[in-house]
Write a protein that binds this DNA or RNA. Structure first.
Length: 477
RNA sequence: GCUCCUAUCGUCUAGAGGCCUAGGACGGAGCCCUCUCAAGGCUUAAACCCGGGUUCGAAUCCCGGUAGGAGCGCCA
């Protein structure tokens, strides 16, 4: 068995149900599955678990694809949809009925509810009591007329199921704890635990990576797999991600779709890096390229306990990426954010140049877009505090004088501007700050920007001169 | 209630019985640098849930508490 799992190529899958967007926990599960497969030269597959016709939506399917696509976690095959495999499930169920590993149960929902209520009143774990389970010599109840029966799996009564979880270690369940779960509804449609088993089997999945809320389903699934005569996969149950406050994430409480992290200004690679380190570690290393993740990721170093999502650290990781990645790789996202705040990227300097100047001082692309807006569009006015501090009669004179000098500058380059502005300050016997800050407010609208020579260079001659003039006029009023 | 899981600085974590005077990172505090904001450099505070064992020796192994969490659907 060990030998078999060693030679068999690794196949993992991510199997979300399309009832909402791709959330952060799902993204991490997908990432772990993907990385593990890549690490072992295996395949990573995507499967959409849409058997709940009531809750599944096309919009959610699209949102999941979009999220995975933005993050860059591609499936090695066309995604599988469970709703397209109903014939297969039906055939397996028929076979099980024939083999006697499954049986019809005619209990009504009311009957089941009453059973559960009684058990809970007796402080027992609620479970199906097996009244329709055929046993040799047992007399089954009379079939009620007009009831479409469900199909239940005949779970073993004795013994135990042992899981050697790659993350949590050995977990043992007694079969006595497990009841006969429904594998097909009254209308004949299959249920989740059954579909998962058949799909993983058919798709040749060797490693099941999923949230640890599925741990309790695993022994039932293993029993079905055994009844089917299938090879058992390995399991890796990943703990959940909590909100920054330690509370469970939910739609009402801080759960965000992956695309919202894009809107907040994350780079996909950075989000991936933060996510991979949330639970997994490789010594003291914090930053990993995609290639490093793919060669180093393993389940031995995945923590079994839940982790909080720390926005501050996520921003730090994002900043590290912004600072170090080739600006060319940031352009597309930056462009997207600029347009999002109504800025036309064509109306200004090359985005790579802007990125190079701004990335040191921006943790997010939203911040970068906002701080760079002045390079592409007219000023909305001056920041009041900054204007009050740096605009006065003296600085207006200086700005006016400087404007004339810059107008005469033969070459509009950063080094030339550096010499011009520094020389101007020196000539006046002033520290650079005395002149740089008023310039900033005049051309940026506030007292924050990249180094003044770079700022003016990026802004260009025309805009710089016009804004200096406008500032002088503004102070004159 | 029953079953299962988890437990190292505020947070993410290193740690596979002696290398631990418990390391790194984020965040915090302080200092330096500085045309702003940053970035960078240096310094600093901060943790093994509790109690029993096992052992010459336990953050690490075992047991028991405690606390958190998950599951117990004709949902996935």
């Amino acid at each position: 068995m060990f030998a078999a799992s060693k030679i068999m190529p690794v196949v993992t899958r991510f199997a979300p149900s399309p009832t909402g967007y791709l959330h952060i926990g799902g993204a991490r599960t997908a990432l772990f599955s993907y990385l593990y497969a890549k690490r072992h030269n295996g395949k990573y597959l995507l499967r959409i678990e849409d058997t709940d016709l009531e809750r599944s939506t096309d919009a959610a399917v699209k949102a999941i694809f979009e999220g995975l696509d933005w993050l860059g976690i591609p499936s090695d095959i066309e995604p599988v949809f469970q709703t397209q495999r109903f014939d297969r499930y039906k055939a397996v169920i028929e076979q099980m009925l024939e083999d006697g590993t499954a049986y019809h149960c005619y209990c009504s929902r009311e009957e089941l509810d009453a059973m559960r209520a009684e058990q809970q009143a007796r402080k027992e774990k609620p479970r199906y009591d097996g009244r329709w389970r055929p046993e040799s010599g047992k007399l089954l109840p009379e079939r009620p007329a007009g009831v479409a029966p469900v199909v239940r799996f005949k779970n073993p009564l004795q013994g135990e199921v042992v899981i050697n979880d790659l993350i949590k270690g050995r977990i043992v369940f007694a079969n006595e704890e497990l009841d006969d779960l429904i594998i097909a509804r009254g209308d004949g449609t299959p249920t989740y635990n059954f579909c998962v088993v058949v799909d993983d089997w058919d798709m040749g999945v060797t490693h099941v990576v999923r949230g640890d809320d599925h741990v309790n389903n695993t022994p039932r699934q293993i029993n079905i797999l055994k009844a089917l005569g299938a090879t058992l996969p390995e399991y890796a149950h990943v703990s959940m991600i909590l909100g920054g406050d330690g509370q469970k994430l939910s739609k009402r409480h801080g759960a965000l779709g992956v695309m919202e992290y894009r809107a907040m200004g994350f780079l996909p690679e950075a989000l991936l890096n933060y996510l991979v380190r949330l639970g997994w570690s490789h010594g003291d290393q914090e930053l990993f390229t995609r290639e490093e993740m793919m060669t180093k990721f393993d389940f031995d170093h995945v923590s079994a306990s839940p982790a909080r999502f720390d926005m501050e650290k996520a921003w730090w990781v994002n900043h590290q990426y912004l600072k170090s990645v080739d600006p060319l790789l940031v352009v597309a996202e930056f462009d997207w954010h600029l347009r999002r705040i109504g800025v036309e990227p064509e109306n200004g300097p090359a985005l790579t140049a802007v990125i190079e100047q701004q990335r040191e001082r921006c943790r997010s692309l939203v911040e970068m877009a906002e701080k760079s807006k002045f390079l592409f569009a007219d000023l909305d006015g001056y920041n009041e505090k900054d204007a009050a501090k740096h605009f006065n009669a003296d600085s207006a004179v200086l700005l006016n004088e400087l404007r004339a000098q810059l107008e005469a500058l033969p070459e509009w380059t950063a080094p030339a501007l550096h010499v011009a502005v520094n020389g101007f300050a020196e000539g006046k016997g002033l520290g650079l700050g005395k002149i740089a800050q008023p310039i900033r407010v005049a051309v940026v609208g506030m007292a924050i920007s990249p180094p003044i020579d770079q700022t003016l260079f990026l802004l260009g001659r025309n805009r710089t001169l016009a804004r200096l003039a406008a500032a002088v006029a503004f102070v004159g009023q």
